[in-house]
């Protein structure tokens, strides 16, 4: 199937998407960890390892069954990312642009990229990783005089509970994206390779979150709106305004890779789940679902918000259950 990826393309896409997801999640979605977001990223890595290991060891039949919870998680998370990208542009632009106009070009872009195939997306991710490094280097260089390591203290932010809650959310994103990467590979992807991707993404995201938190003290006393969080994130705290351009490009570029990877993975998993469905139909159904959810603002619905922290629990439970019911070990990739 055109949507499936080679091992190398899946790894590159996973790194690009997961780095972006962790950074954006820990700075916007889960402010619980306050200035200990980087610790939450590391905790998320540790917590996600059992689930990812389990997913890698599942038999093919069990992995196909796991596609359903992964698919649901991906569709909702992709919709959340689409909505967030559109929202960030409306925060940044002085001209008012209708939300639909911000979302529909994304649909067209993702549809086009999905049509070009998973390997093309992986290739673009590999190039993006290099460009992202250059952009972040520029951001760090011009912000160097403003970093204050003191704002990382207290090390546990608002407390161990907050770090743990954020860590569980990060573990959920790790398990979701790594599990999806394992599910859409043309060949079996080994645990070691996934672990390497997780390590790189977590290290980069944790460093970026820490640098971000060294720019300004965390607000813990009063609730901060999402708009303020996005605004301070993209304006880089104290950076001169015209130097925000690299950060904005890095932000949107990362978000695009995240959205595209999640959408393409959702479509590919749908194809795995319903093998008789053609690639075109999978794309139509998968992308329609993602964009309908985004336009309906489903990820912001109260029920979804309440369930979102349990993504990791759900995936881990599904993996354990499938291990017990359909078995694991045999037929797995050598790790």
């Amino acid at each position: 199937m055109r949507l499936e990826m080679s091992e190398s393309a899946a790894s590159a896409s996973l790194v690009a998407a997961l780095t972006s997801r962790l950074f954006y999640g820990l700075t916007l979605d889960v402010p619980d960890a306050a200035n200990a977001g980087w610790l939450a990223a590391l905790a998320g890595l540790l917590l996600s390892l059992p689930a990812v290991w389990l997913i890698c060891r599942l038999r093919p039949a069990a992995r196909r069954a796991l596609a359903l919870p992964l698919l649901m998680g991906l569709a909702l998370d992709a919709a959340r990312a689409v909505e967030c990208a559109a929202y960030s542009e409306s925060c940044l632009a002085f001209n008012h642009i209708a939300p639909a106009l911000l979302t529909l070009p994304l649909l067209a872009a993702i549809l086009r990229c999905a049509w070009l195939g998973g390997d093309a997306l992986g290739g673009a991710a590999r190039i993006w990783i290099r460009l992202f490094a250059v952009l972040i280097l520029i951001v760090i260089l011009y912000q160097l005089p403003y970093y204050n390591a003191g704002w990382l203290r207290p090390w546990l932010g608002a407390g161990a509970g907050g770090v743990l809650r954020a860590g569980v959310r990060a573990a959920g994103w790790n398990a979701l994206l790594a599990g999806s990467a394992a599910g859409i590979c043309k060949a079996e992807i080994g645990f070691k390779r996934l672990l390497r991707c997780l390590l790189i993404s977590t290290a980069v995201a944790a460093a970026l979150v820490a640098l971000r938190q060294m720019m300004a003290p965390a607000f813990t006393a009063e609730p901060v709106t999402r708009f303020t969080r996005i605004d301070t994130l993209l304006t880089n705290g104290r950076a001169p305004l015209y130097l925000q351009l690299p950060m904005i490009v890095a932000w949107f570029g990362g978000m695009l890779h995240l959205m595209c990877f999640e959408s393409v993975a959702a479509c590919a998993l749908l194809g795995r789940l319903l093998p008789k469905l053609k690639a075109g139909a999978c794309m139509a159904i998968g992308l329609s679902a993602v964009f309908a959810l985004a336009l309906l603002r489903a990820p912001r619905a109260a029920a979804v918000e309440r369930l979102a922290p349990y993504l990791y629990h759900a995936l881990f439970a599904a993996a354990v259950m499938l291990w017990c019911v359909k078995g694991g070990e045999a037929g797995c990739a050598a790790s």
Partner: peptide
């Protein structure tokens, strides 16, 4: 055209599409 329609967001989408298209 992308920049005129959607600003930096549009340019990033255009750049992304170009990159994926080149990689394919």
């Amino acid at each position: 055209l992308a920049g005129a329609l959607l600003g930096l967001y549009g340019i990033c989408i255009a750049g992304f599409c170009i990159a994926v298209s080149v990689c394919s």
